[in-house]
């Protein structure tokens, strides 16, 4: 078993309280024709349910347009919920008033993909870090200074005094991303949502940022939702992995179980498509399905992967939407292939 892919402590899933609970979450975007007539909905997120525990990382993998960023943004409250509910600390988000939302948002940190785009170019490091505190009512100057020092120390932007007056363009890509993390941490959140936090960074910096996030998680018992298209980083960074396709979560698994054997044909294709540096790669062709992900305005009936799937069962996969089949205790796939294995 991989040494870095941590498994959950045994009692965790049942007894520990979930920080975040998502139930049957749908996010649809309305498409209008000529600005007035409703032309249909883009079903960007079409039914997602899961729980995220303190101190745990869930990786969400999938290709562009699979709904992984929509899921993150809906949890962050940037997108409206079409159907379903989100509970944070057992509190339903739909019942929150303005103050409640403020409290909720200060409990979740958001780490964006492009650090340079996420940082205001006209603000110094100091102001970037003060801003969330000003908005969220940490007004005591001494407390502000203490927190700024603490987060900068934690993200290893040292010496602190040198960095405080700098502007984002004076930092390297890795430093910018560390500043984004510092900003996400300055309100002492319980949960982080990291949307492709390392995809814009060079390989040697990537590992540094992931290890930094891991260290923060251990120190503060953070729950992390790690969204990525890069399968090769997830084994080092998460307890559980969810794969998404066409707006649905199609596979849920512990990292160890998934690495041993991906169940859903789509997840298996993602595995096949990921190359590890190996001279043998030169000699073999990759066995990956052709075609494109479906339109989310008119998704295919049944399983959304069936038009590209080689193991498609006629009369079943193209008709009925597969439910989640729990093949192992810690491993489920929404695929009809496993209907008899439960």
């Amino acid at each position: 078993m991989p040494s870095l892919a941590r498994t959950l402590p045994e009692e965790q899933p049942t007894q520990q309280k979930a920080v975040l609970r998502v139930e049957d979450l749908h996010t649809w975007f309305e498409v209008r024709r000529m600005g007035f007539f409703k032309a249909g909905d883009v079903r960007a997120l079409d039914g997602a349910s899961f729980e995220l525990y303190a101190g745990e990382t869930i990786s969400i993998v999938g290709e562009s347009g699979c709904g992984k960023s929509t899921l993150a943004k809906t949890i962050l409250g940037i997108n409206h919920i079409t159907k379903g509910s989100i509970f944070f600390d057992d509190e339903d988000l739909s019942t929150l008033d303005k103050e409640g939302w403020k409290r909720y948002r200060s409990n979740i940190g958001y780490i964006q993909q492009d650090p340079y785009g996420a940082l205001p170019p006209f603000m110094t490091v100091k102001r970037i870090l003060e801003e969330p505190m000003k908005i969220n009512g940490v007004r005591d100057k001494a407390e502000q200074t203490r927190r700024i020092r603490q987060v900068l120390e934690e993200v290893k932007l040292a010496p602190i005094e040198d960095f405080l007056p700098k502007f984002p363009h004076m930092l390297s890509g890795g430093q910018q991303q560390r500043l984004v993390i510092a900003r996400a941490m300055v309100l002492e959140p319980k949960m982080l949502i990291a949307d492709e936090p390392v995809s814009m960074l060079d390989a040697s910096v990537r590992v540094e940022i992931l290890q930094l996030l891991q260290a923060l998680q251990r120190r503060h018992n953070l729950a992390i939702l790690y969204i990525t298209h890069d399968l090769s980083t997830v084994r080092y960074f998460s307890e559980r992995i969810f794969a998404m396709y066409g707006g649905k979560i199609i596979e849920k698994s512990s990292t160890a179980a998934l690495l041993e054997q991906p169940l859903h044909p789509y997840t298996a294709a993602l595995f096949e498509a990921t190359s590890d540096p190996d001279a043998e790669n030169l000699k073999t062709f990759k066995d990956v399905p052709a075609g494109e992900p479906p339109s989310l305005m008119n998704p295919p009936p049944g399983c959304r992967f069936h038009p590209r799937c080689r193991k498609m069962i006629k009369g079943l996969c193209d008709v009925q939407i597969p439910p989640e089949f729990w093949v192992q205790e810690d491993h489920a796939a929404a695929c009809w292939l496993y209907k008899d294995e439960v």
Binding site: S3, A203, V205, R206, E208, L210, R235
Partner: peptide, 29 residues
């Protein structure tokens, strides 16, 4: 030879920072 037996210290470090899906290794930066 390169993936398993890089010579320059930078190449070695670069290879050590590449995450792999199939093999578990200690990543370095």
């Amino acid at each position: 030879y390169f993936y398993t037996d890089a010579h320059h210290p930078y190449s070695q470090k670069l290879m050590a920072s590449v995450p792999t899906l199939r093999e578990d290794k200690e990543l370095e930066f």
